[in-house]
Simulated assay, not measured.
Amino acid sequence: MKNLLLYRFGIFVISSVAAFLKGDFTLITGIIGYVGLIFLVIAGILTGSFMSGDRVRANYNAEDEERKERK
């Protein structure tokens, strides 16, 4: 949990420095927004949220016997 806070603080500091050097402080929200969007896409890919319904049904039907054994 402490590492996550440090990552967020680091991203904020980097975006603040970039905004200060550029002279446009609205750049902070843009940078933080893009970084958040990148993390959401990565999380979606790693959890398999972007799979189609056909793929999900095929995977569900393919593991019928293993699912019964687990129950």
Rank of each mutant, 00 (worst) to 15 (best):
L6I: 10
L4T: 07
V41C: 12
L40V: 12
E65P: 09
A62Y: 06
L40G: 04
K2W: 05
V41E: 12
V13W: 07
G30M: 09
E65D: 03
F20I: 08
R67E: 06
I38Y: 10
L6F: 09
V13A: 09
V13M: 08
E66K: 05
I42G: 04
I11C: 10
L4Q: 06
S15I: 12
T47L: 08
Y34E: 14
L21N: 03
V56K: 05
G33T: 02
N3A: 14
I32P: 09
G53W: 07
K71D: 14
N61C: 06
G53H: 08
I31W: 01
M1D: 05
E69Q: 08
G10E: 10
Y60R: 01
A58F: 02
R70M: 15
I45H: 05
A19E: 00
M1A: 06
L6E: 07
G44A: 03
G44V: 06
L5T: 15
G33P: 08
S16H: 05
L5I: 15
L4A: 06
V35F: 15
L40S: 11
M51K: 10
G44M: 07
V17K: 12
R70A: 15
I38W: 11
D54P: 03
L21T: 01
N3H: 11
I32L: 05
G48E: 01
A18V: 14
A62G: 01
R57P: 03
L27F: 06
L4F: 06
D64R: 15
R57A: 14
F25W: 12
K71R: 15
S15W: 01
K68I: 13
L37V: 08
T47F: 10
I11K: 10
G33K: 05
G53K: 00
G36N: 13
V13T: 01
T47N: 09
L37G: 08
A62S: 04
V17N: 05
V41L: 15
F12I: 12
R8P: 00
V35C: 13
T26Y: 11
K2A: 06
F39A: 11
A58C: 02
S16A: 12
R55F: 10
F12N: 00
E63H: 12
T26K: 09
A62W: 05
D54N: 02
I32W: 05
K71F: 14
F9R: 09
V56T: 07
I42A: 09
L40Q: 02
I14D: 00
R70Q: 15
G53C: 02
K71T: 14
V41Q: 10
G53T: 08
A58H: 00
I11Q: 11
I28S: 00
K68S: 14
V35M: 14
R55L: 01
I42S: 04
M51E: 07
I32D: 00
R67A: 10
A19S: 04
F39T: 11
V13F: 00
G30N: 08
E69M: 04
I38A: 11
N61I: 09
A58Y: 03
S16D: 00
D24Q: 02
L21C: 04
R57W: 13
L46K: 14
G36C: 13
K2V: 11
V13K: 05
E69R: 11
F50R: 04
D54M: 11
G48T: 01
E63A: 08
A19F: 02
I28N: 03
K22V: 12
V35H: 13
